[in-house]
């Protein structure tokens, strides 16, 4: 009898526990004011930087791409050196569709996400079985493979010269793309925000919690009944879809695609952006993309080779002194300031 009494006290009944879990997750998922500020500032770019809307759209697209990497790296703990594979697939899907007459933007984006997602799904079974150097090599290998195919299929992709003849129809048949990038920016912002909502929902879902558990302790999750490989494969596929959408956005808003979208440099850059901003924090990719692209705009204006030097230095410093990136560092500072 005493046994049951103690168990009753330490473990409340299942309904209560479920309610407590829901309350915890709901608490995690609550919107906080800095988030609102972030998106308001992003939207206000329209008024604040009317002459840099092209750059602003690039930041959002790169941020979305970095966010998709954050899903697998920050949440799933999978290190990929070939995430550009999915970005490039999306870009080529959207670009090729538009170049061959299917120039309705929204369906083009859906197709971009689908194609990238299919390839992501197919490769996810490989990826979840590997770790360490082999994982790095295989993710990189898949991207290099696609890069090589795109390069050789010059007749279809245009290779290094790029895919010519993309022109987009007005969005929803109403808003046509203009010279100053206003429509492109608003379109990008809307799509990126929608994808962000999905990512945020995932991040704060029981599924996201399971992934975090997997990242923190890969042995304990199977012990409580989670399947690591299934979770990893699912998040990898979702991230691939999102990267594909980001690539599609780039192709549609710039009306240009070249093999560079699949290159190693792009895979490395998105990793850099994410880590610079802070992995596993949802907003890290956007912060990193903004700092990275603005810095590049300024520094490569001075000299292209110096930009490479500063980029390298930035990476070394982040790894040595700010492992959680700019956002993580800011959070730590804020916490210390509050305690003092």
């Amino acid at each position: 009898m005493t046994m049951t009494a103690t168990t009753d006290r330490t473990l409340p009944d299942p309904a209560d526990r479920r309610a407590a879990a829901h309350a915890f997750i709901a608490g995690q998922a609550r919107w906080r004011w800095p988030e609102a500020v972030f998106w308001l500032v992003a939207a206000a770019s329209l008024v604040i930087f009317p002459h840099s809307l092209v750059l602003a759209a690039q930041v959002l697209i790169a941020g979305l791409f970095a966010l998709s990497l954050d899903l697998i790296l920050g949440l799933g703990g999978i290190v990929s050196l070939g995430h550009a594979a999915f970005f490039g697939l999306g870009a080529y899907t959207a670009g090729l569709l538009a170049a061959h007459g299917w120039n309705e933007p929204l369906t083009g984006l859906v197709a971009a996400g689908l194609v990238a997602g299919l390839v992501g799904f197919a490769t996810s079974f490989i990826v979840v079985r590997l770790k360490g150097i082999a994982l790095l090599m295989v993710t990189m290998g898949v991207a290099l493979l696609l890069h090589e195919v795109a390069q050789k299929a010059h007749a279809i992709t245009g290779g290094d010269d790029g895919l010519q003849g993309i022109s987009m129809a007005p969005i929803l048949g109403l808003f046509s793309f203009d010279l100053y990038g206003r429509t492109a920016f608003i379109y990008t912002l809307a799509v990126v925000f929608a994808c962000f909502l999905v990512a945020r929902r995932l991040y704060n879902s029981p599924f996201g919690l399971a992934l975090k558990g997997m990242r923190e302790n890969g042995r304990r999750v199977p012990a409580i009944g989670g399947s690591i490989r299934r979770h990893s494969a699912l998040i990898y596929t979702i991230a691939a879809v999102m990267a594909g959408i980001a690539g599609g956005l780039l192709a549609q808003t710039t009306e240009f695609v070249s093999v560079e979208v699949l290159g190693f440099q792009r895979s490395a850059e998105v990793l850099i952006m994410l880590v610079l901003g802070g992995a596993g924090l949802l907003y890290g990719g956007f912060v990193g993309a903004a700092v990275f692209l603005v810095a590049r705009q300024i520094l490569s204006g001075i000299d292209q080779t110096y930009w490479f030097f500063w980029l390298g230095l930035m990476l070394v410093l982040v790894v040595l002194f700010a492992r959680n990136g700019l956002l993580g560092g800011a959070k730590a500072l804020l916490a210390r300031w509050r305690r003092a």
């Binding site: 290190v79 050196l81 790095l136 490395a268 990793l271 850099i272 880590v275 490479f308 030097f309 980029l311 390298g312 230095l313 930035m314 990476l315 070394v316 982040v318 790894v319 040595l320």
Partner: peptide, 11 residues
Amino acid sequence: VLLTIGVVFMA
């Protein structure tokens, strides 16, 4: 990986 990519870029 990140540190050594940084070194590569600087090199």
